[in-house]
Design a protein around this nucleic acid. Structure first.
Length: 288
DNA sequence: GCTCAGGTGGTTC
DNA sequence: GAACCACCTGAG
């Protein structure tokens, strides 16, 4: 069991930020996360002065006094979860880089200060974000659950909880387009089929992607079926941890037109534009 | 019935 | 290279 006392770490905010679709609340202060074939139970310990903080800052989710409990061994934490949650990086340093005259971004960052850019599995993000197109978050979650139950492996946690691992490229490449359509993936079925075959066949090397520069990885990802610029950026940010990736979807597009008619200052936020994108996305989704 | 939800790919000019 | 448009599905 690991207790984390961190100002910029909020599981509820990460859950709602739309970068991870296998993180779910199971009760008010308990969450479950499946990453690849791993399972993690997470507990929240609300801070004593939480209420007052809400009133002062107007921000949602985590408060500075909140504690997060990860139900794993110290070894699992050190070798996997610490990096997964990007916990060795100070996000308050990112927030401090925000232009003090940029009231909108300041507010967005204050509102979503507990968000982190997770380091998720590349293959899992490829399939997840192909499914995300023209789709809403609850439905994306449902489709991933269905896919995992159908093609993943059944596992049990030490306390008897059953879950299913995310199916690998080999396993998914065996699925036919018709089978996937039966699971209600719609026109994305063809994309998943073709992409799974390309990756299982070695046409695209996922390990090589990790070594590439941002734009090179982005271009390489766009060779896959069903992956355009937006989805490639999501994979670059949420799997490859390319912090300059800045996925522009319909929400972000609207915000940029409204608050940054002269263009978003990407130069200023070199190395953390993706974090800013997440603050803006979450703020727009939850607050507006 | 119609529109929309975190887009992509193909066609057309 | 920008501007259409089809594409599965389910909820409001």
């Amino acid at each position: 069991m690991i207790t984390i006392d961190n100002n910029c770490f909020s599981i509820p905010q990460i859950c709602e930020s739309g970068q991870c679709f296998r993180l779910d609340a199971v009760s008010e202060n308990t969450y479950e996360l499946i990453a690849g074939s791993r399972y993690l139970k997470i507990g929240l310990q609300p801070g004593e002065h939480g209420e007052r903080e809400v009133a002062q800052t107007g921000s949602a989710g985590a408060q500075p006094q909140d504690r997060t409990i990860l139900y794993c061994t110290a070894e699992e934490y050190e070798t996997f979860w610490k990096e997964y949650f990007d916990l060795s990086v100070s996000y308050s340093d990112y927030i401090e880089r925000i232009d003090s005259r940029d009231v909108y971004l300041q507010s967005a960052a204050a509102f979503g200060s507990g968000i982190r850019i997770l380091r998720q599995d590349t293959w899992e993000m490829i399939i997840t974000f192909i499914l995300s197109q023209q789709n809403n978050i609850p439905r994306i979650k449902g489709l991933i659950r269905t896919l995992s139950e159908r093609y993943g492996k059944r596992r049990e946690t030490p306390d008897g909880k059953v879950y299913y691992t995310f199916p690998g490229a080999e396993e998914l490449s065996q699925a036919t387009e018709e089978e996937l359509r039966e699971l209600k993936l719609g026109y994305r079925s063809r994309y998943i089929c073709q992409t799974a075959k390309m990756i299982a066949g070695g046409e695209i090397d996922l390990d090589a992607l990790k070594e590439m520069e941002y734009m090179e990885a982005r271009t390489e990802l766009m060779r896959l079926s069903g992956i355009g610029g937006k989805v490639a950026d999501c994979i670059c940010l949420f799997a490859l941890h390319q912090m300059d990736a800045f996925p522009v979807d319909t929400h972000i597009k609207k915000v940029l037109e409204l608050h940054y008619p002269g263009g978003f200052p990407f130069e200023r936020y070199k190395g953390c534009a993706g974090v800013m994108q997440q603050y803006i996305f979450y703020y727009d989704l939850r607050y507006r």
